[in-house]
Design a protein around this nucleic acid. Structure first.
Lengths: 132, 132
DNA sequence: CGTAGATACCTTGTGACGCAAGATATAATG
DNA sequence: CATTATATCTTGCGTCACAAGGTATCTACG
């Protein structure tokens, strides 16, 4: 447990930009996690490592377990304990049937949302934004 | 004030998908609003109409005024009252110098984030997701 | 004058969320 | 027994969007 003890815990009012970045992430986390367990069953820490390795998204334990619990209780993923094969039991999560439908819907929403923001960026970029 | 009185106010536990959609929006709202006032000064209700017209993003007054206040107090936009020319005074918002820098940074973050999610979707889509 | 309607801005109350930090559990090693 | 490594879960904090309701100002009608 000697991991993050060099940082004195974020007490600053967070310079507005940092807070925004965190906000942005929030919207994608559920989607990212569902995608992580969509083709293979994975356990908690494995999901964290998978996201980090494949997308650089850094998710901590305090973040992922509440989300997994929420996704489980709403029926989008199913959890199963697997013990014996590893030193410590692991809880594997996989997408449920309902989750698969939800995921398809979410991907649709994501695509639509992404398009809206991108369109706005392109429109405003070329509409007189020259300040120099 | 007879506008939204047909809907009995959302009391349902929100079927998980709805909550998620709202979460996703959150991350993009600041960005969308900054973009709205980046090339032209606009007042509150005008921003709402502009976003609706150009991107279908529906933002209500209860949402936009707190955000504008936050963006103003953190120095990313500047506000100016304009009275006399219209029946009712309007508060025009425009991007500040600092806001312009922040906007550029945010666009960078947005692009990077979007790429991560898109990559994840493509990877998982083609990695054994056939259930039929 | 009164009041009704339109426009515009702002505030309050509610529920939800991410996350750092810490707690808990298990098994192997010294 | 203590430590280390792995793994899951919980608590406390600050933050946010948003529906609903409130305020202020001008015009129109009688």
């Amino acid at each position: 447990m000697a991991r993050r003890d060099t940082e004195p815990r974020t007490l600053t009012p967070l310079p507005a930009l940092e807070t925004w970045r965190e906000q942005l992430r929030r919207g994608g986390l559920d989607l990212a996690i569902l995608l992580s367990v969509s083709s293979t069953a994975r356990y908690g820490l494995e999901i964290i490592r998978h996201l980090q390795a494949s997308t650089d998204l850094v998710v901590t334990e305090g973040t992922i377990y509440p989300i997994l619990a929420r996704l489980t209780s709403s029926g989008l993923v199913e959890a199963e304990w697997v013990a014996g094969e590893t030193p410590h039991p692991r809880k594997y999560y996989r997408l449920s049937g309902e989750g698969r439908k939800a995921l398809a819907t979410m991907i649709g929403h994501w695509t639509s949302f992404r398009r809206k923001i991108d369109r706005l960026i392109e429109r405003e970029k070329g509409s007189g934004d020259e300040t120099e």
